[in-house]
Computed example of a mutant assay.
Amino acid sequence: MTSPVFPFTAVVGQDDLRHALTLCAVDPAVGGVLALGDRGTGKSTTVRGLAHLLARDGLDMPVVDLPLGASEDRVLGSLDIDRALRGEIAYAPGLLAAAHGGILYIDEVNLLDDYLVDLLLDVAASGVNTVERDGLSHTHPARFVLVGSGNPEEGELRPQLEDRFGLSTPVATIRDVGQRWEIVRRRMAFERDPEAFTAAWVEREDRLAARIRLAREQCVALEIGDDVLHAAVRICVDVGAVGHRAELVLVRAARAAAALAGRPAVTVHDLAAVAVAALRHRTPRTALEPATATAARVRIAAAAVLGRRVA
């Protein structure tokens, strides 16, 4: 029996996380979401809620969990032992095969073993998983939305893996009394009667799913003018973004945002709206600067580009 899933649209707060996940649902090429912050803030609930929302509308994006201590065989796949005993050489799919076309979710991603990080980097770069061992040679596509969460106080994330996440958003404990009260109220209502609670949110879930479906269909056809591309490069240069993936993620996220809003073309305003999420983890900061310093620099750079545009 399938466990009930808390509705995505019923999650209180965490608007930045929900928006980032929605952009990746519109265009998986945005590259996934890194959500770092406090424990118990609904990160996994939000991820699973989105997957359930999409499945209701026929947009299947299953969530596959990658445990911290998973073996290489479990992640990559291995020789099918049962069939091997019958004299056959066959592939037994692993977690990467199961995640193809869906979401690969890693909780406490900053504590992931180095060997698993290396495996993920290889597959994320190529979009293909190749297994060669025990007389077996098998290759299959492995393209997925990578979503990671964790508490940065418990360990640093390797820069190579951090860069593989398209968007990044902090997830903090909500301090507003009213919002916290609403979180408790909704959760208790859901636990008391999941079917009734879910039914109350069906209309909102269906509306968002329809918006995502339409945005998916229109996304790749949206016009992206040279002025928008130039503005994206200008923002990345001004903040000192590391690597050239920055511009690509920024433009893809802006395109997804424009499609979600129903606009026929991407604007510089779309770039500015997603710039912090796309660039905060690609902008270097000194050891003495607070974590919020990079987001502030991105906002200033985006505002400057908007100002030049208006002028």
Rank of each mutant, 00 (worst) to 15 (best):
G101D: 04
S71Y: 09
V109H: 07
L161S: 06
A295L: 12
A70Q: 05
G69S: 10
A92V: 02
A209F: 08
A25W: 11
G58S: 07
L17M: 14
S3Y: 11
G127L: 08
G262P: 10
H138Y: 14
A99P: 02
V75M: 09
V242P: 00
R175F: 00
A196E: 03
A125Q: 14
A35I: 04
D114W: 00
R297C: 13
D57A: 15
P4K: 08
L34N: 02
G148E: 06
P93F: 11
E247G: 06
A241N: 04
A301R: 01
P93D: 11
A97W: 07
A232K: 02
P4T: 00
T2R: 15
E88I: 03
S126E: 13
I174F: 01
D226E: 14
A124E: 05
T198R: 14
T45A: 13
M188F: 14
V145P: 10
G148L: 10
H19K: 14
S78W: 03
A257V: 03
E289M: 14
A196G: 01
L96P: 02
L248M: 12
P28R: 03
E205W: 09
R211N: 12
C236V: 10
V242L: 15
G150P: 09
R187G: 04
F144V: 09
F165H: 02
E191L: 15
P290N: 08
A221V: 00
R143D: 15
R245W: 11
